[in-house]
Structures are given as C-alpha cells and as structure tokens.
Design a protein around this nucleic acid. Structure first.
Lengths: 331, 331
DNA sequence: TCAAAAGTGTTATCCTTACACCCATGT
DNA sequence: ACATGGGTGTAAGGATAACACTTTTGA
C-alpha cells in the first residue's frame, strides 16, 4: 500500500468553447511542434507548487497564453489511458490528463483578446461540428448518417460475435438502437460521447488506428476532422456535458453578450444542442423560467421587425434551485 | 509550455457503498497507521505501468485488499488541493487524488467476502448518515438542522461581509435558501456537496480546522463524524452523484440481491435518497418504467401478507434511453 | 406591396400527485 | 377477529406539444 508510483505528470486539457457566427467553436492549437498533422486542444502541465488547485492552474496558463477571459469552468474527466494518450512507445513519461470545459465570449472579430489568442497559439477557434458532423441536426437529419455512418455500423452489427452484451455491457444492436436511434428509437442529443466511443470501437474514427485497430473505412472516408491523442474524446465529453447542463443551469449566458434578442438566444441554444426548436415554445420556456428581462431597447439589425433586447436575470440563481432551459423533446 | 512538474503521485480514493440493514454504508479503513483518529476511505496509489486505466487500477487494489466484487464503478472528481489533502507542511510529495464511487453487494452478515474485507482493512462498513446526519429525512426533518445547524448558519449569514455574492458566486443568504431550504425554499436532496462545502466554509465542520479556519463551534458540538483529509468531501460528492443518478439509471439494483420485494426496493431507494416515498406512487413508477419483473415466488418474512418477489429486468437497458426511477418531488 | 422576422393565443394530451379502498397472511 | 403489511383504481391539476394567426419593420 505504500509503493509510490513516481514520475507521473499531470496534464490539463481544456475544451474552450465560444460562439463564432452562430456556431459553437472550440479553441485548437496549431501544429507548432510538427509532430502530428491533427488539431489539438490547448494543453498545459499542472504544477502543484505554483497552483493550489487544478482549476487555478488551468486558468493561469490559459490566461497567460491566450488572453481569453474564461467564464464557466468545469472539470470533465480524468484519463489515465496508456496507448491512447501517448503514442504506442512506452518510453515517454506517463501523463494523466484532466479534461476541462471552459466557456468564453469573443469580444471582437479579429482584434482584441481573441485575435491575440489565435496568434499566440498558432491555432484558432473552429466549429465543433467539423469534428462531429453527425451531431448537427439543426437543419434536419445529417446526410452523413444515412450515407456513411449507419451502413457501416449495420455491417459492424452484423459481424457481432455474440449478439448480446457480455455481462453488463450493451451489445452492438442495442448500442445502435439507443445511441444512434436505429429501428425508430429516438435520437438523444446528449449521447455524444457514447456515439463517439461506439464509432471508435467500430473502427470508423481515424484516431483509432493509433490504438492498434484496423481502420479501413476510416482511411477511405474519415468521419469528421481528426484530433491529436484522445482530444476528440475530450471534446465529445465536453459537448455531452454542455448539452446536458444547458437544461438545468443557465450556462448559455456565458456564451452570449450582455444583451441579446430572444432569437439570438434561441439560435445559440440550437447551435449547442444541435437541434431545431419551436419558436413559440422556446419563448414561453424562457418567459416562465424568468431567465431574462427586457432591457427596453430594440435591435434593428434583424432584417425584419425590430426585436426587443433582453439581458440575463442574475437573480434567478438565487431564486430557483435549478434554473435552466428544460427543453423537452421538441423544445 | 514544456516545464514538466514531476514528482506527483496519483492516489485513488473510493467511496465503496453497500446496503447494511436498510442503511447505505461506506467502507472505511481502520486507523492502522495511527496517524489520525478519523476514519478514512480506502486509498491506493495508481501505478500506470501495471494498470492501463485508472478504473482498472482501482478495481485491482480494491479486489486485492478487500475481496469485494465491485459492481458499478464511476469516477467522481479529481482533487489537486494543497492544504486539504496533505497536512499543512509542504515537504511531502504532492498527491493528486481521483475520487471514485463504487457499488457492491454484501453477500452475508459476517462470513464470506465481506467479513474478510473488514478483517483485511481493519475497518468496516459504516452508515453514511453517521457522517451526514442532516441528510437523512426518511423520518421527517432531522432534528440537528433546527437545533444546531440553522442557528449557527443564521449567525454566519448575519456576519456576511457584503450581503451579496461577489461576481458570480452566491451570497450567504442565497446559499442558505437554495441549499438548506431556508425561508420556505424546498430541500433538494441532491445538494449534498453544496451543503457540506457551505458548512465547511462556515466553520462547522471539524475537518476545516486543518485548513486554518477557526472552528469554535465544530469543536463544541461536531456535526457528524469526521474523516481524514478531504475524504468526507469525496463521500459527499459520491452521495450527491448517486442520488442524482438513481433517477435516470438503474443503479439501485447494483445494491440489491437477485430478487427482492417491492417494499425492499422502496426502502433502499429511500435510504439512498434520504427521504420518504409514497408507496402507491413508487409502485406505479417502478411498474410503468418496466424496471422489474415478478419471479413468481413470494416472500413470507414480511410479517403481513406475503409479498411477490421481483428481479431486475436487464432488458430495459436495451429498451429505454434513460431507465431510472424518476422520483418526482413526492415520489 | 411584399418579404422577413417578431410576437401572441389556444387547445389536446400526457404525466404527476393525491386520495381511498381492498387483499392475504400470522397470531 | 384483528393487526400488519401487500396491492389496486381513479380523479384533479399542471406541464408539454402542437396548432394558426397578427404585428412591425426594411426594401
């Protein structure tokens, strides 16, 4: 019980999310080291001598490197996987990495903190649906599902060795039903991680080849943009969490400006949850959740009738135990 | 970006939960080292050379040391706090600890794996409400709330330096309302961690004295049994998570035997969620969630009319996207 | 005058809550 | 017979889902 396993490093990985033109986007760093062609999430080592907590450590290096002001910051998961994190060779020091989700607001287009952020990291904000095109149902069912994913997944299901989950794990058919909505089952937008992991196992994700899997299909027509190490998995975790949290915590407002129209708010929620919402119901929802209040001003940039501007009512935090946008199945 | 912070150790802490006579109990290890008088959660170092993932590492040492078979295992949170984990002196190596929740079933009273588990660790399973007496509302509002906690917390609220949360943090009055149900607000049984942290901040938790806080009140009449380091915080996290998860995943069954009566199931759910449920509504809930099926047998040990025995329907896992006991506000 | 987007009112349906009553066994 | 716990039916209320329609601007 006293054998210490020394030589471990703690890495902090952050999925830093902001809205860029109605699109949820994530900060990626450039391929500065030239090690790999894929995008990576910003990464920083945790130094327990300088920082009292993991979150403070994260905030410190993010703010130092990117000049972004982080709003909501949330720990996602700690990964200790060998073979996923590091490349196959075992010589490098072991890195246990703690994944974080952070929300921020971009002040301006190209100037301001944001511009400097991009310059400093050599990367930039990129729409998260570039990495997960099958998660964007805002304009209906994504074509990639029926054209590429489901045919391949049905083949994978057919070659199922035992047609049933062993022990408590789900079998392939069940996972296809529950996570991908096969056989008329509903699509659950929160199951982003489950879908990613199932695709990974089925060998449809380019990253899986590093894990010693055959990726014939992945090589032929890659599903979404790849990322370094297991960063795409961290991003999938981040999206899952954000989509879930939206419903019981007012996190959207961390991504919005000071004032906004109800349509802008709806577009943001739609962008995050990846689905279309009914205008009328969404408005009533916001209304009787008392999440916002009118500023009295109107916005004329909409193209039609001017829209009232609203601001977030901070008071709800003190009023309601779980303030959020409890979108039903239709919103 | 390349400064490595070496010399860190990864510790794995598990809140291993099982039912002991209608009480949720947690495995604690004895004060073998004699270092501290308080109970501790079982702890093991993570050795990345021997174990591929954190969870496998955890399962390995738990099974080696306790002979328990773990069912559901779930990562809770990773703590890097200095000053909470380690004692104040900075000389010892930094430990980042990953908290886990694990559910298990005790096969027998004193023999079998359980007995050996107790013997091997020098500790045993102890009701979790020993550590959190204010969380047990099964027999109505706990007396300790009105007798000790709320008076002290009102005093703490009165000496609030700024009467309002600074920035996005909640003020003392709001926290008392939302987390402790002051001023007619409802009690939310999932806010176990929030309550513990508020009590900690208010100086009512014995453990806080190690963090350099004055604990006049804590010394006079300690609230609940203390634990070593920040283990009670990990346990609070575990209870919060389990209470929440109960509602959308069939985790209760990890704590039940193969077959059980509906009343036994209800008692277990009540024990975990810490509140009383209406019999009729609970039964209907279980019924149309299709979570169980009758075995055909009956139990005669109830004292009244024999009760039908049921077993968990594993098939729901494949049928429903979120099978659980969505207890409403009354159950 | 028309397109585009904002904003309002109303109804059917389901799920939650709550209540009241009957059944089978041991003592 | 009666106490004890097991088991069932049904009505009221509130939240959700879905519908169609009016209003105000710019071009």
């Amino acid at each position: 019980m006293s054998e210490a396993a020394g030589g471990i490093e703690i890495g902090l990985n952050a999925a830093i999310v902001a809205m860029v033109d109605e699109e949820p986007a994530v900060l990626t760093v450039g391929r500065d080291a030239g090690v790999d062609l894929a995008d990576a999430l910003p990464f920083g080592p945790f130094d327990p001598v300088r920082h009292r907590t993991l979150e403070l450590g994260l905030r410190a290096w993010v703010e130092a490197q990117t000049a972004l002001r982080l709003g909501h910051v949330e720990q996602l998961y700690t990964f200790g996987d060998r073979g996923r994190h590091a490349r196959a060779d075992d010589a490098d020091p072991h890195v246990v990495s703690v994944g974080y989700l952070a929300l921020t607001r971009l002040v301006d287009g190209a100037e301001g903190p944001t511009g400097r952020a991009l310059a400093a990291t050599g990367g930039g904000f990129r729409p998260w649906y570039d990495y997960f095109p099958w998660e964007d149902w805002r304009r209906g069912r994504p074509a990639i599902l029926d054209e590429a994913i489901l045919p391949a997944m049905r083949a994978w299901r057919a070659e199922d060795p035992e047609h049933r989950g062993l022990g408590r794990a789900l079998g392939r058919a069940e996972r296809l039903r529950l996570h991908f909505g096969e056989d008329g089952a509903p699509w659950d937008e929160e199951k982003v991680l489950e879908r990613y992991e199932t695709l990974y196992e089925a060998g449809l994700i380019a990253e899986a080849s590093r894990d010693g899997r055959v990726c014939a299909r992945a090589a032929a027509a890659p599903l979404g943009r790849a990322m370094r190490f297991d960063h795409r998995r961290i991003l999938a975790t981040a999206i899952s969490r954000l989509r879930a949290k939206l419903k019981y915590r007012p996190v959207v407002f961390e991504l919005m400006g000071e004032s906004f129209t109800l349509t802008e708010l709806q577009k943001t929620v739609e962008a995050i949850s990846g689905r279309h919402l009914h205008k009328q119901n969404f408005r009533r929802l916001v209304e009787n959740a008392a999440l916002v209040e009118a500023t009295g001003e109107t916005s004329l940039v909409t193209g039609g009738r001017p829209a009232s501007l609203y601001r977030f009512r901070r008071e709800v935090l003190a009023e309601r135990p779980a303030p959020g946008l409890r979108l039903g199945s239709r919103g």
